[in-house]
Every structure is written in C-alpha cells, then in structure tokens.
Design a binder for these strands. Sequence first.
DNA 1: TTTCATTTGTCCGTATGTATT
DNA 2: AAATACATACGGACAAATGAA
Lengths: 80, 80
Amino acid sequence: MTVIDHAARTPVYRQIGDRLRDAIERGEYPPGARLPSEADLVREYGVARGTARAAHRYLVRLGLVEVEPGRGAYVVEAQP
Amino acid sequence: MTVIDHAARTPVYRQIGDRLRDAIERGEYPPGARLPSEADLVREYGVARGTARAAHRYLVRLGLVEVEPGRGAYVVEAQP
DNA sequence: TTTCATTTGTCCGTATGTATT
DNA sequence: AAATACATACGGACAAATGAA
C-alpha cells in the first residue's frame, strides 16, 4: 500500500505528513488521539525512521501534533 | 511539573539529580541522611520510575550517594 | 514465627532523542 | 534519505532485601 512517491518533488516526509494531516482533519485522529508511531510509519510506508520522524515534526510545525518522549505523537487538544 | 523540562537538552534524570545534589550541598540532606525514594521522586516529579532510578544512579556516579537494596539512597558519610 | 509495607533490583516492551556514517 | 547505534523515557511486572508489626 504505497502511496509514497520517492521521485516526486514533494519530500516523502511531507507526503506522509499530509496524509496524516488529512486523517486528523477528517476526524480519524480526534484531539488527544495518538498517531501511528515512528515504527508504525516505517512499517506502513517502508521508509526510514528519520523520514517517519520528519513526518511527525512536520505536523508539530503545523501546530497539529505534540510529541512526547517515550509516549508517542498526539493530536493537540485545542485547535482554532 | 515545576522544574522538569522534557524539551531541555539536559536529561530529566540529571535535572532531578542536580536538584538533589544542590540540596545535599546546602546541607538539607547531611551525610548519612536518606534521600527521597524512587517512589517519592516519581510522585514529586511525575516521572517514570526508571527516570527516578537514573537520578539516584547519577548521584552514585558523582560519589555523593550510596544506594542500598531494600533500604534506600543515602548521602555518603565521608566527603573530601 | 509469619505477615506486611516499603524500597531497590531486574527484565520486558515500546517510543522518542541524538549522533554518526 | 537511509541505516545503525546508543541514550533517554514511559509503563508494567515480578523478585529480593529490609524492617516493623
């Protein structure tokens, strides 16, 4: 199930991040929900862990997600 | 939690350990005194037990503390 | 003696942080 | 971006040591 296009101009981490963002905005991951872990993304998309991390970081930059060491990546509670 | 900053570059166990070290050097825990237990640190700082243990170990590495199974963590008696 | 609470010791699994190559 | 290694952190479970009831 590879939606990921390594040849695209859009970085892989953002392709994955955008998919997660869409899922969040669709309500599949409501506020407070835990997103797939880095390892999950590695398994699901066949990417390196650094890329999975970058996808999480990307969502953090967007203010959609908070990452907590040893716990996971969570959808932020309050959102305008 | 007041003092603990998971985002800091200093590991949490060392932030806690440094606070205990300061307290020891201020005389709040004189030689032979028992330090807060792992469970105490867990309660006080809201960290996992492994982190509390790491804080104790950190002070042992510094030569300030000795840990005794079933008894607790004690400030060493002799100090240069 | 046994029982119990407290405390540290160890192991497991999972997850993120950082650095190097 | 990938691959690897190690450090840090969380949570749970059970064992062992201690000391007091």
